[in-house]
Every structure is written in structure tokens, then in C-alpha cells.
Write a protein that binds this DNA or RNA. Structure first.
Lengths: 174, 174
DNA sequence: CACAACCTTAACGTTAACGTGAAGGTCGTG
DNA sequence: CACGACCTTCACGTTAACGTTAAGGTTGTG
């Protein structure tokens, strides 16, 4: 078991912005910009006002990056999908401080609702992508048909050389 | 013998830019911009230099729009995926004028290769989306677990997560 | 043939999402 | 405690992808 620097599981392990950038593949500027846009708030600040990020921040930033790069959402859309940072802060605090089971459950319910919305959005996007892929495959099949009835016998090897046709092929349709 | 507006199968049916816009869901400005960027060239121009688009142009524009909106590609990436317009024009002409089967076949082969590249790109994107969906579902399951053992039993794993301790109310962090 | 409803090019404006300094404070290691 | 590597907050610059007039030509319909 690789104990890192301490055995206490509640160790903070806060990172500064450059390390976070390296870790997430974002630039420091982008991270500050996302903060400015209200997409996240670093877990803490040092005495000298350095931003300090925890694991949850990293996770959030990686998610933002995926939404941007992989799903292609705008920061505005991402803001819609994510819990806004004010609420996040508030809920974290409340979740830690409350002993009320009902309240905890309510908070968790909210979270699942939000995640469900995210999943729904992503699935919808995938559906549109699927449709595009189907279309492209349709086009591909169409081209293959044309190729097939260009010559009665399939030629296994496309060279650059001219080829005498065995007999006139008439373009068939559908 | 040639009937003018009826029954001829090779009827052009050219549209002007505003109709194309309505048909494709793009703006006229966007269409002109795509032309400027080399993504397409209208099939013809009127005497007075009006742009005139044919069915193939429409198809291409719809595809561009899908690539932009559904797949989230930049116009530069779209340009990479599509045959550049110069080649498209050239190949169309050659395909219609050539009687050479080998050449036709070569052109078709090129087209299938291009479509295959498009499919590959789209499939790769879908894979990344799938991965994101899987992650989100993982988060959802995680939340459900927490919900389950909130009113089921005590905490199975502390560390990082919420803390359903029997003793309430602590406010220590820093 | 008059005229409204299109169209053209050209040019400047706008927004999102950062990049790129500048001017100065902070951190930790020798 | 000095110093280099990091950080901070402005603030202006840049690129993509259009939006928006402006000034003028084209088309088809009454």
C-alpha cells in the first residue's frame, strides 16, 4: 500500500494552477477564464491569494474539457449543464455540515437529477452523431453500388492503368 | 420535342440563396461565408451574377451544417473532411465527360476513400462521447449508492465522500 | 416599364474563447 | 535574505464565424 505522505485519508492535497493545467490539459489562462465565467471556484486561496485546487476541482475541470472538446459544447452550454458554482459551494458546505438525513437526501436527489440531465443531453448528441454516421454509410453504399455496376466483374486491384471494358455497362438506377 | 418544364429527367431546379437558406437552416451570410472559405461553389450563376444552387449543393450544405452543429467541427476541420471545392468541380466535370471506365472507377474509389475517412472521424467522435456517457452513468450510480446507504446503513467508505457520522455538526476544515 | 423584392460585393461590427504581455506580489530553497 | 520561479490582476490583441449596414445591380410581375 503506497502511503503518499500521510495515512490520514482526509488530506487536502491542493494544487497550484500550473500543476492543474498540466494535469487537465488546459492552459492556466483557460482555467482562470472558466472561473471568471462562473464555471468553477478553486477550493481555496493561499495567504498570498494563490489559487489552490482540490481533487473535486480537477474532476470538474476534466469534465469541462471533455464537454468542450469531445462533445463540442460552448462554455455557455456547459454552464447550463453544470451546477453553477455558487450553488456548488453552498451545497458542499451544507452537505458537510448538516446532520439532517432528509436534507442530505434532497441534495443527493438534486445531484442525480442534474446528472440525469447531463446524460440525456449527451445521449441526444450521440443520437445525432449516429444519424450522421448512418447517412455517411448510406453514401458509401451508394458509391459501392456505382462501382459495382460500372464493371460486371469486380476487379480486386485498382491500378492506374486503363482498362478495356468487357461490355458496355449501362447505368442502372435503384 | 423537348418539353420545357415537364417530364425531362435532367431538370436542373436551381435555387437562389434565400431559398437555400430556408431549406438548409443556414443564413445567407453563412452560405456566402462557406463559399468564401472554399467549402462550396454554387452550381451556377445567373446572368446578373445571382448564385444558383442545385441539389448536390443543398446536400453538401446540409452535411456542412450537420458537421458544424451535430458533430461540432470547425469549418477548418470540415474543410479537411470534405473534398475541396476545386477538386469537386473538376471531378464532376470529368466524371460527366469521360467515357473511360477506368477513370470513372478511379474517381469513385477516391470518393469512397473520402467517405471512409469521414466515417472514421465520426465514429471516433462517437467513441469519445460514449466514454463521457459511461462516466456520467458511473457518477449517477455513485450517487445512487450514497442515497441507498443513507437510509440503509452507515458509511462503507469515508475518505473524500460525504460523511454520515453518528455525531452531527462539525465545522473543521483548513 | 415601373417597382418591389430579390440579389451582389465590400466593409466594418460582434461574440466567444482564449493568447499575450505588463506591472507587481509570493513561495521556498540555498 | 536573496533570488528565481511561480503567482496575481488588469488590459489589450487575436481568431473564427458569422451579423449588419451600405451602395448599388437584377428579376419577375402588374
Amino acid at each position: 500500500m503506497p502511503t503518499k505522505t500521510l495515512a490520514t485519508p482526509a488530506e487536502p492535497a491542493l494544487l497550484r494552477i500550473q500543476d492543474v493545467a498540466a494535469e487537465t490539459g488546459l492552459t492556466t489562462r483557460a482555467i482562470r477564464y472558466y472561473e471568471e465565467m462562473g464555471l468553477l471556484e478553486p477550493a481555496a486561496r493561499s495567504d498570498g491569494a494563490y489559487r489552490l485546487f482540490d481533487a473535486s476541482d480537477l474532476e470538474r475541470l476534466r469534465f469541462i474539457r471533455s464537454l468542450r472538446d469531445d462533445a463540442g459544447f460552448s462554455l455557455a452550454q456547459i454552464g447550463q449543464l453544470l451546477e453553477d458554482e455558487a450553488a456548488r459551494e453552498r451545497n458542499r458546505q451544507r452537505f458537510r455540515t448538516t446532520g439532517d438525513k432528509a436534507e442530505r437526501r434532497a441534495l443527493l436527489k438534486d445531484a442525480t437529477a442534474r446528472v440525469d440531465r447531463q446524460i440525456e443531453t449527451l445521449v441526444a448528441k450521440r443520437a445525432r452523431l449516429d444519424s450522421m454516421i448512418a447517412d455517411a454509410r448510406g453514401r458509401r453504399r451508394h458509391l459501392d453500388e456505382h462501382l459495382a455496376n460500372l464493371d460486371g466483374g469486380p476487379d480486386p486491384h485498382p491500378g492506374g492503368g486503363p482498362h478495356p471494358a468487357p461490355h458496355p455497362a449501362r447505368g442502372s438506377r435503384r
